[in-house]
Amino acid sequence: MSKRFAKRLLSLLISILLVHAVAFMMVRSTRGGPFDEERSLSPQVRVALEQRYGLDDPLAVQYLRAVGGLLRGDFGPSLRYRDTQVSELLADALPISLALGGGALLLALLIGIPAGLLSASKRHPLGAGIAATCSTLLLAIPNFVIAGVVVALFSFRLGWLPPAGFGQLRHLLLPWLCLALPLAAQIALLVRARTTETLQGAAVRSAVAQGLAPAVLLKRYVLRPSLTPVLAFLGPATAALLTGSLVIEQVFALPGLGTFFVQAALARDYTLALGVTVVYTALLGSCTLIADLLMAKLDPRVEALS
């Protein structure tokens, strides 16, 4: 277990380094820098600027310095926000994005698992149809549309929740909902498929024959096998959350990683974009790792296979 964990951790570190290296090379390969904007700079000013940001050193030196910075969590100064370190911006934005993503994931699980279980049980034929339709529908609608509809309904029509902003818990409720709904749909579909299979299996049939109480049956024989695909889905779910948060943070004007990343990508703030990319890679990698470990814990066969 620990050996496998160490191996995975190592490969995670390597992939972070690789992403960083490729992104670094891409940034350095652009000859149009952040300094040639509308008006041209005098040569002296340009040289001074390049010296300040260390752009006049050989590429290898720059790269090694960047790796050193990476190890210390330092990505250098932002090219757009004057006198601000990228790491400061990241430190401000990361908690917001984590709260957004974590809350959305939790909400998705809370909606998705019961919905999947319910729609798999034969006692609710109507419920099954509704759940299936809702899931397909949610998967076919882009999340910014969901956001628009939700804002129009809850903020403009009903006036219950603020349409944008940040600071209080109620600012996060709508973003959570918008991010969670498509994920909940996928989780529900996964749980439904696996539970249908489990319910038809021999284990459940003999348990029923023994006269086990439904609650015990659910807990001991249905829930556990039904949750493995959900755990396996946690990695892709994190990726989907990252992608979704790019949009949702924009719509609700949340100052999280996604907002910074999109702004940086549009405004050519490459050091910031690079920093966010590395943080995203680390986030996704660690979530996948945790999901794998949990899965091995829940289903010993996984361990045996790999």
Binding site: V19, T243, V262, A264, R268, A273, Y280, T281
Partner: peptide, 19 residues
């Protein structure tokens, strides 16, 4: 698969604007 490809591609698109 363990790399956030969407982010990476956005990054790439933004860089390619220069060219």
């Amino acid at each position: 698969e363990s790399i956030p490809m969407v982010v990476f591609v956005l990054f790439l698109m933004s860089i390619l604007q220069e060219y």
